[in-house]
Write a protein that binds this DNA or RNA. Sequence first.
DNA 1: ATGGTTACTTAGCAGACAAATA
DNA 2: TATTTGTCTGCTAAGTAACCAT
Length: 503
Amino acid sequence: MLDHEYTTKEVFQNNFFSDWRKEMTAEERRVIKHLDKCDFTEIHRHFVDRTAARKALSREERQKLKEEAEKLQQEFGYCTLDGHREKIGNFKTEPPGLFRGRGDHPKMGMLKRRVLPEDVTINCSRDSKIPEPPAGHQWKEVRSDNTVTWLASWTENIQNSIKYVMLNPSSKLKGEKDWQKYEVARRLKGVVDEIRSQYRADWKSREMKKRQRAVALYFIDKLALRAGNEKEEGETADTVGCCSLRVEHVQLYPEADGCQHVVELDFLGKDSIRYYNRVPVEKPVYKNLQLFMENKSRGDDLFDRLTTSSLNKHLQDLMDGLTAKVFRTYNASVTLQEQLRALTRAEDSVAAKILSYNRANRAVAILCNHQRATPKTFEKSMQNLQSKIEAKKQQVAEAKAELKKARADHKPGGDDRSKSFLEKRKRLLEKLQEQLVRLSTQATDKEESKQVALGTSKLNYLDPRISVAWCKRFGVPVEKIYNKTQRERFAWALDMAGEDFEF
DNA sequence: ATGGTTACTTAGCAGACAAATA
DNA sequence: TATTTGTCTGCTAAGTAACCAT
């Protein structure tokens, strides 16, 4: 870990040292008193060497390792559920190490304990072949609870939360759940207009609680904010969602960028990813926000009368199964469908259609604020692409000159040889131009995506049936949109969606 | 309401792996 | 064949939201 910036942080060092001291013998505790006097370079070198050794393995050795991993996968990576052999998602317990939270985490550097069989609960049918604990050990418990989906669990010592062994997304169980999730979102489509007019009416309610709920719901709907459950202070990084927004996260501008009633939101959300947005809102929303912020200090809750559970209770009354997160799924999927409709042209090449798909996907990712760090190799690979484009332009120019020459050589009524030569030149130029378009398309796509993570929405928010239908309608092979794993994950949708599927 | 517990989904990243290129 | 580049997978943290007891 010495290479990482977080090891230089005081919180990390203090947490690590205090946990380390707990592991020491009395003698060690007497000798080792200051972290900054400890030299870990020998251990560090050991791991660097080990990584290098792995990298230097021969083809045969690699093959052998691969086979061993495959054997493990076959032995432990599957279970039988309702008579079907299903792949398990995570069949290995997490190894011990130093905890690395995201963002400014108060527990960074703490020692994450090794999980022992004695910590592990097994959940399987009573009449099944119950997994054997490692020799000399026992499971904490073996139970048979068919109301839950997990196969094994243990309690992790950093947050005292339970970790689970569950099925792979390709399993029937997960597929069905995924399908249900999108069905709930589709039901929202039928009532969303009514819900929207209701929360607009509630902006003027006499009850402050209702007003807060209505404004929060507006944010969740319009900006695709997360619900924002309360978190235990000091246990996790300081992040918020809609219901946990504080006064300090909101700025009001009567006028900005030529618009009236502008709200600026600036906060750290899930995974400490910054959400920054300046957006004009309707006047009653603006007025309400002013009211909610009156006589409060920076650290106070914006929606002090609102919790995620009261919000979800209300949503449940509006539609069976409706919760705050359904709005994210709904708005993401609807956006994809709309964008695909707006961007796709039937006469475009497959490459151009894929660009349109990525643009639509990107619109969703931006809505949901799915960000990523610019890839380390971005600048370099962009330069490479640019030089490829330059080279291709050169080729196009040359081909044009050659075509001109061929035209001049082939007079009307000229011989067959010069005619076929001319045709050849034409085809060559066309091919090169196509390649050039494809390359610049790629460059645009790359630049526009450098800080946007497309995968998260693709996997979790976009009803795959929308994509499958689009592929069928426009003759795009589905493998261009979903790789093998993704096709397995969305097998249910590939089966289900025809070209006229509508979300 | 409130807080604790539990089960599940959603999230970004690092390293492994595979394909492309020199 | 060796090296570079791009994609995929595994990992595990961090959310949502239900349930239950008080």
